[in-house]
Each structure stands twice: as C-alpha cells, then as structure tokens.
C-alpha cells in the first residue's frame, strides 16, 4: 500500500471527520469558558479569600497542574463510577478539560491582576467604588490586556488537548480518525487528515486571536499601531504558540 491522494481527499470531507472537527471546536470552546470561570474563581480565592478559601484554591491548582490530563480524564470517566459517580462521555470530557484548564488559567489571571498598577486601586476607591465595582470596571479590564495573549495560546493548546478525550471515546477529531483508519486500514491518510484539520482550526484561531489582542491593546498606544499582519509575523518569528 502506498500514499493515496484519493483517500486523503475523500477523508478530508468525510462526514465522520467533519463532525469530529465540529466536536473538537465546541468541546474546546465550552471547556475553555468553564475553565475561565474556574480560573477566575480560583485566582480570586487565592488573592482575596480567607485562609480556608486560599488553601482550597491552592490545593486545586496544585492537584490539576501536577497530574497528567490523561489520568484526570480516565479517573473521571472510568474511575468515579466505582464510588457511584457516573458521568457521560461528554460530561466527563468537559469536566476534565475545564478543571485542568482552570488550574492553569488561575495562575495566568492572578499574574494579570497583579500587573495592574496599584494607583488604579487607589483611584477607583477614591471615587467610591466597592470591591466588586473596582474588579469589574477597572482591574479586570486592564488585567485582560496582559491575560489575553497567554489566554489565546491556552486556547490553541486546548484545541489540541481535546484529542486526549478520545481515550474515553469522545468522538472528536482524533477519535474520528481512529475509527476511519480501521475501515480501510488507510492509517496514514486518516491521521494526516486529522492533523490537517487541527492545523486549519489552530490557524483560524490564530487569525481571530490577533484581532482580539489588537482590540484590547487599542487604548494603550503605539502597540496598537502595529498592524495585525505585522503582529502575526512577529509571533511567527517567536515560534509556535501553545502547548498540549
């Protein structure tokens, strides 16, 4: 058997792969949003909570950053039923990915908040903002500027990390490729197609990311004058972003 372009192109548009790609996208988005919520919560608990809340946040971050996501997924889906907690494949995948992501995002968010000038807190308190108003109106919007680039890279990573959910039979891109590979044993074509799909998704995200970053940079000056294209060049030169 040799490389067949025919199989490659048929697989590219195969319904199984297209559905898999769609699953990868929504699974990434949902897990990222939930992870962001968990990350903000954990960061807040760690920075502003009492001792108990601080310890809980630190334990959570330590636990999920200290163990492989693969083990987390397997424990959630195949381990927890043993103690009576039964989750569907989709629930387990989202929960595992979100919990894992939240632990990483917590640290990113925390350093973003700490990067906001202390004078901003003084100024917002001086005009009479409560803690909550200060957070929402002044601190977090400014922290966003530092948080958003690494956040974008995390999402890039998330798109690829979802492939690990294939081990608990979540039918995303990787799993689709596995199933397709077993039909005609066109293993190389099937996985290459999956790889090309990942590349396409990550590249599209890259384009969106540049625009989001430019939007948040706008108030802050000369950096905003750098065109999205120039910025992409700089980022390309800096090497591939994200980790899986």
């Amino acid at each position: 058997m040799n490389w067949s372009w025919e199989f490659f192109f048929t697989y590219m548009t195969n319904g199984l792969m297209v559905r898999g790609a769609w699953t990868t996208v929504w699974l990434s988005v949902v897990s990222m949003i939930l992870g962001l919520g968990l990350g903000v919560l954990a960061a807040m608990m760690k920075m502003y909570g009492n001792r108990a809340l601080r310890y809980i946040a630190e334990f959570y971050i330590w636990l999920f950053r200290g163990t492989p996501i693969l083990i987390q997924l397997v424990i959630i889906y195949t381990g927890l039923p043993q103690i009576g907690i039964r989750l569907t494949v989709i629930e387990s995948a989202i929960l595992g990915l979100a919990l894992n992501e939240g632990a990483y995002l917590a640290e990113i968010i925390r350093s973003g908040i700490m990067s906001v000038d202390k004078g901003q807190t003084d100024a917002s308190r001086a005009i009479g903002m409560t803690w909550r108003q200060r957070m929402w109106l002044v601190i977090l919007p400014q922290a966003a500027r530092t948080i958003i680039p690494p956040l974008g890279n995390q999402f890039n990573g998330m798109l690829k990390t979802t492939s690990l959910a294939s081990v608990i039979s979540m039918e995303e891109l990787m799993r689709s490729a596995q199933m397709l590979a077993q039909v005609e044993f066109r293993v190389l074509e099937a996985y290459t197609v999956a790889a090309v799909w990942y590349l396409a998704l990550v590249s599209i995200w890259g384009m969106i990311q540049v625009r989001i970053e430019a939007h948040y940079e706008k108030p802050f000056g000369p950096a905003a004058a750098v065109s999205p294209d120039a910025k992409k060049q700089i980022e390309k030169a800096a090497g591939p972003a994200g980790t899986a």
């Binding site: 004078g119 003084d122 308190r125 903002m129 409560t130 400014q142 108030p219």
Partner: peptide, 25 residues
C-alpha cells in the same frame, strides 16, 4: 466595604501620578 465606598464618594482625591483609567476614553 460597600459602606466605606459610600463615604468615599463625598471626598474627591487627586494623585501625584494622575491614575486615570488607561483603558477607557
């Protein structure tokens, strides 16, 4: 916190380093 904030609304403060909110017009 919220009651202190209410009191602070009746006092204005201007800082050496301006401390304008840089992210809004």
């Amino acid at each position: 916190d919220s009651e202190v904030a209410k009191q602070q609304r009746d006092l204005g403060m201007v800082f050496q380093s301006f401390n304008l909110f840089p992210h809004i017009s």
